[in-house]
Every structure is written in structure tokens, then in C-alpha cells.
Simulated assay, not measured.
Amino acid sequence: MTDLPTPVERGDLPRPVLRYLDAHNAGDAAACAALMAPDVQVTDDGRTYDGPAAVEAWLGRATSEYTYTTRYLGAVRDGPDRWTVTQRLDGDFPGNTVDLRYAFTLAGDLVRRLVIAP
């Protein structure tokens, strides 16, 4: 039998994922970085950022570069410590609208790995 991803309502996501989404949507890079494991790796737009300080610097740049709003589209649980959230971003960036998948791997109450991709 194959384990299939399980759909999840936003309110049923694990606390670190919810806190990250809320902080990211608010543009709070420091709050996002505080949720990261010491050995975190975040990949976005083909670049990987290692460690909470690099994640905070990346998010600080990303949130100041464009203005956008986000809308939760859905989520699935991919495994015991893995969750994928899909959000729609509308803003003043090239293309104006994009649906992004945020693939989280957790380590307890911290984010160990995050891959953001269309």
C-alpha cells in the first residue's frame, strides 16, 4: 500500500508551519528566522540559504522588494514530519500572480527544511 498525501485544513497545520506562514505573510523576517533549526536549509527561486541568519537576510530582502498579498489554497501532509502548503500570491512582481508550494520538513517545533516552488 502506498502512503498518499493527506489533505489538511489551515487550522490543523502544525504550529511551526502556521507561525511561519503568519510571520512570512506579515513580512516579519526575524520571527520567521526564530522558527528555523540551526541547520535549516531554505530553497527559493533556485537559491539555497543555510542557517537562520541567511534565512532572515533572504526574507528581509524578499519582503521589501515587492508588495503582495497571499491567500491560502490548501495543504497536504506528506509524511510524519513533512507538510506542503499552497498559497496564491498577488502583487507587483513580474507576472502579478503565482501559486507557490511551501514544502516544510519539521524537526520538533522547528523548520529544518523549506522548499518554495511554483
Rank of each mutant, 00 (worst) to 15 (best):
D22Y: 11
A33Y: 01
V115E: 04
G91C: 05
V76A: 06
D92L: 07
A29G: 12
Q87N: 13
G79K: 00
R61G: 09
E65N: 09
C32K: 02
D44Y: 03
V55F: 00
A62K: 09
C32R: 07
G60T: 04
F104W: 07
D28Y: 03
D22H: 11
A75C: 06
A62V: 12
Y102Q: 05
H24W: 01
A54Y: 01
S64I: 14
T48P: 08
G95L: 00
L110K: 14
A26I: 13
G91H: 03
R71L: 11
G51F: 06
Y66I: 00
T70P: 02
Y66R: 03
D22I: 06
T67Q: 15
Y68E: 09
L100G: 13
G60P: 14
D39L: 07
G74N: 04
T70C: 12
R113A: 02
V76R: 06
R112Y: 02
A26V: 15
R47S: 09
L21A: 15
V55H: 03
L35G: 14
S64Q: 12
A107G: 09
G95V: 00
T97D: 04
A31F: 10
A26R: 15
D22M: 12
G46M: 13
T97V: 11
D50L: 11
T67A: 15
D28H: 05
D45F: 03
P38W: 08
A57H: 10
G74C: 01
V98R: 00
R113G: 11
N25I: 09
V76F: 01
T63E: 07
L18M: 15
R47F: 02
A103C: 13
H24G: 09
T69F: 10
L89N: 04
L89Y: 06
V55R: 01
A62L: 14
Y68W: 07
A33N: 05
D99I: 00
R113V: 08
A37P: 12
D99S: 01
R71D: 10
T97S: 08
A103W: 11
A34S: 02
A31P: 10
S64V: 11
G91S: 02
A23G: 04
T97K: 02
Y20T: 04
A34F: 00
Y68P: 13
V42W: 13
T69G: 13
Y20K: 02
A26Q: 14
A34E: 01
D90M: 15
R61T: 11
Y72M: 06
L100I: 04
N96S: 12
V111P: 01
V85H: 10
V40D: 09
L35F: 09
P80H: 14
P94L: 07
T70L: 13
W83T: 07
R71Q: 07
R88H: 08
Y102T: 10
E65A: 08
L110T: 12
E65C: 14
G46W: 08
L18E: 05
D39K: 06
A117D: 01
H24E: 13
L35M: 03
A62N: 06
D99N: 04
R101G: 13
A34R: 00
T86K: 12
T63N: 15
R82A: 11
A57W: 05
V40I: 13
W83R: 10
R47H: 14
P80W: 15
A54W: 00
G60M: 11
L114V: 04
A33V: 10
A62I: 09
Y49V: 06
P52G: 03
P80Q: 15
T70W: 04
T97R: 07
G108L: 07
D78N: 10
Y49D: 10
